[in-house]
């Protein structure tokens, strides 16, 4: 169970980091009115947002195998990132559109380079959006079951939900251990929810209304 927990932490942490990073970059780019094909990209990501995982699930196994990452934590991190990116991009794009253009101008005048501008100005300003995206992505990836079930064969690489099912089947009547396992999945999300319930609820609303 401990190993599953650590796997889940890595998968969730890295997916969320990648989603925020790539999502904010792309969202910022798409917030510019003159970005080429802007409407098309936004529509594409909207479709990506509503696309069920089953649409791309089946060939992913083969693809991950070809990339040589099948049966490693990357086999989850990469698809999870892709799956959660569309919402992040749309949210960030909407957020940055409302950002005053002076900010960038001022930065340019100060001679701030792109990378610095991004990390020291843009992300801090976008903090509410970042919190929202981190909250939704973490919840989604921490609890994801279907892909984790199909893409991970090696028991050492299983994440909590899949590991939990395997454990339940093997130790059906070991109730104390089962209860411990169930809490290991649920307590972190409940705890995070107890602390960040405002951000999470804001995230749900933002994600829903977008």
């Amino acid at each position: 169970m401990g190993a599953y927990f650590i796997n889940s932490l890595w998968v969730t942490g890295l997916s969320a980091a990648a989603v925020v990073c790539f999502g904010a970059w792309a969202g910022f780019a798409l917030s510019k009115a003159r970005f080429p094909l802007r409407k098309f990209w936004l529509a594409l990501f909207f479709i990506g947002m509503i696309l069920p995982v089953q649409s791309y699930l089946i060939p992913l196994t083969g693809l991950l195998e070809k990339l040589g990452v099948h049966d490693s934590l990357w086999a989850l991190i990469l698809p999870y990132t892709a799956q959660n990116l569309p919402v992040a991009i749309l949210l960030f794009a909407a957020f940055f559109v409302s950002l005053p253009a002076e900010l960038e101008e001022a930065a340019k005048l100060d001679g701030v380079r792109t990378a610095r501008f991004y990390f020291s100005i843009l992300l801090p300003v976008a903090r509410p959006a970042v919190a929202t995206i981190v909250a939704i992505t973490c919840l989604n990836t921490w609890n994801e079951f279907l892909m984790a079930m199909l893409f991970i064969v090696d028991p050492a690489m299983k994440t909590l939900p899949v590991g939990m099912i395997a454990f339940e089947q093997a130790h059906n009547t070991d109730y104390p251990a089962l209860l411990a396992g169930l809490s290991l999945i649920s307590v972190p999300t409940l705890l995070v929810y107890a602390i960040f319930n405002k951000q999470i609820i804001r995230g749900v609303i933002a994600g829903a209304v977008k």
Partner: peptide
């Protein structure tokens, strides 16, 4: 990332 892991497999 979106292209390789969502659009392509779809």
């Amino acid at each position: 990332v979106f292209l390789v892991f969502v659009l392509l497999p779809s």
